[in-house]
Nucleic acid binder design. Structure first.
Lengths: 249, 249
DNA sequence: CGTAAAATTGATCTGTCTCAACGTGGGTGG
DNA sequence: CCACCCACGTTGAGACAGATCAATTTTACG
C-alpha cells in the first residue's frame, strides 16, 4: 500500500471496516499530495474548501482571527484526520485552516469525493469521523468555558496524546507535538505567558513535560485525572491494541 | 399545510428550495409530535438520539455537565431547527439536550429519516443546516475564548435575534426569549451574578433590554457593532425580506 | 555568527468570581 | 384568600486567576 494513505485508511477503519476495494479507491483517488510550510493556509476564510483535505503528516488547525489580531484555534487536524466532506457544500468557509509546522496533505478533488461517498462504508466512516470531531469541539467549548488553565492544557495534552496514539504516533507515552506555546495559548484561550508558567508547573509536578516540540507523559493516569479527561468521546475503544497494530508501519 | 412543519419547512428552504413533493414528504413523515416541560431532556447523554429532532416551538439546548455540577450549554435549538441526521449514527450521545421552557418537537423515526435523505434537495438542506450550526459553534468558542462578558451577551442576543428573525419570530426588533439569567450564564460561561450586572448595564446604555423573557433591541446597529457581530455566518442572506415573507403564517 | 522567533521570568493590574444578603413574583396548599 | 415558598433576579464587598507590560534568555537556523 502506498505510504500516502496509510494513516488515513487506518484512521477511517476505526469508524467502519473498509473492503479492499474501498481501500484501493482511497489510494487511487488520492492523486494530489500537497506540502505546506509553517503558517501556510491550507484553506482560506471566504474561499471554498479546495477539495477534501486529509492530513498525512504534521499538524494543521482551523482558526479564526478577531479584529484586534488575536487568534483562536477551533480544531486541530492531526495525521490521519480528514475534513468533513460536507464542507464542500459551502461556497465560502467561515474560518481558515493553517499549517502549524510543515504539513503534508492529500487533497481529493470534488469528483473523487463523490466516488468515495457512493461507497456506503466509506461514507459512514467519514460521517463518524466528523461526529468525533464535533464531540472534540464540544470538549473545547467546555474547556474554555469552565476549566482552569491547568486543566485546559492538561486536557489538551490528553486529547492530543490519545489521538496520536490512535494512529500509532505515540509509542511509549511520548509524541512529537509541533506546537508552539503561542499555538497552545491560542487553542485553550490563555495568554502565552500564562501557558508558559503552567507548563513549568506541569514539569515541576512531573505530570508531563512539553519541551522542544516533544510531549512526554510521565504519569498518564494522574494526568487524565488532573484533566478530568474521559477518552470515550474520541470513540477509539480499542485504543491500546489498535495502536500496537498500527505501529508496524 | 399543517401547522406543525411550517417553520421547519421554511427554515430548510433557506438552505435549498424544496419541491411540493418534498414538502409533502416532510409533513407525512412527521408523525410524532412531542411536548416537553422545562428541564425535560429531549435526549440523554449515553443514549442514542431517539430519532431526528426538529423543534417547532420553544427553546432547547445541547448541554454537558461537569463533575462539580456546573453546566455548559453547547448549542441552542430554536423553532425551525433540526438536529443533524448524522447524529443517528452514534450509538450514544456525548451530551444531552434539554428543554428550556415548554418545547414542542417533531421526532422523525429513523426510517422516515432515510426517506428524507433519499431526496437530494432535502439531504442538501439538512447538510447545509448542519454546517450553519457548526459555524455557530465556532462563534461560541470564539466568544467564550476571547470576548468580554459584555460582548458575549451582546453577541448571543444578536445571534438569537437573527435566528428568530429568519423564521419570522422577531417582528419589529423584539422577540420572546424564554431564557433564564442562569441559562445565559451557562451559555456564555459567565457567573449568573455577572450576567445580571451586564444585563443591567445593557439596559442603562439603552442597547437592549432583556426582561421577563422578552428581548427588545433598541438599537440594532449599535448592538451589532458593540458585539462585533457579523451575521454572514448564519447564511440567511435575504434576512429582511425572508422574514417579511414568513410573517404571513 | 547573527538575527529573529520562541521561551522564561518578574511586577503589577483588573475583570470576573465568590460569598452573602435581600427583593420579588407567581404558584400552591391550607 | 391569605401565607408561605421557591425559583429567579438584584445588589454589595472582597478575593483571585489570569491578563498585561516589560525585560531577559535561549533556541533555531540561514
Amino acid at each position: 500500500m502506498s505510504g500516502i494513505t496509510v494513516r488515513l485508511t487506518r484512521r477511517l477503519e476505526h469508524f467502519a471496516p473498509l473492503s479492499p476495494q474501498e481501500r484501493a479507491l482511497l489510494q487511487e483517488t488520492a492523486t494530489s499530495v500537497r506540502r505546506f510550510e509553517s503558517r501556510d493556509d491550507l484553506a482560506k476564510q471566504g474561499a471554498p474548501l479546495p477539495g477534501l483535505l486529509a492530513i498525512t503528516y504534521g499538524f494543521a488547525a482551523r482558526y479564526k482571527l478577531l479584529p484586534d489580531g488575536r487568534r483562536q484555534l477551533l480544531a486541530l487536524l492531526l495525521p490521519g484526520d480528514v475534513c468533513d466532506p460536507r464542507a464542500l457544500l459551502s461556497p465560502q468557509m467561515d474560518h481558515s485552516i493553517a499549517a502549524l509546522g510543515p504539513v503534508e496533505a492529500v487533497v481529493f478533488p470534488e469528483d473523487a469525493v463523490r466516488q468515495l461517498e457512493e461507497r456506503p462504508a466509506l461514507a459512514r466512516a467519514l460521517a463518524r469521523s466528523a461526529l468525533v470531531h464535533e464531540a472534540i469541539g464540544r470538549q473545547w467549548l467546555l474547556s474554555v468555558g469552565h476549566r482552569s488553565s491547568f486543566e485546559r492544557i492538561t486536557h489538551l495534552f490528553c486529547e492530543i496524546h490519545a489521538r496520536l496514539d490512535a494512529v500509532g504516533l505515540a509509542p511509549g507515552r511520548a509524541c512529537d507535538v509541533p506546537l508552539t506555546q503561542v499555538d497552545i495559548a491560542d487553542t485553550v484561550a490563555i495568554t502565552p505567558v500564562h501557558v508558559n508558567r503552567t507548563l513549568m508547573e506541569l514539569r515541576r509536578t512531573r505530570l508531563v513535560t512539553f519541551q522542544n516540540k516533544r510531549l512526554v507523559i510521565h504519569d498518564l493516569r494522574s494526568l487524565q485525572r488532573a484533566a478530568g479527561f474521559d477518552p470515550s468521546y474520541l470513540c477509539v475503544p480499542a485504543l491500546a491494541e489498535t495502536a500496537e497494530f498500527l505501529r508496524e508501519k
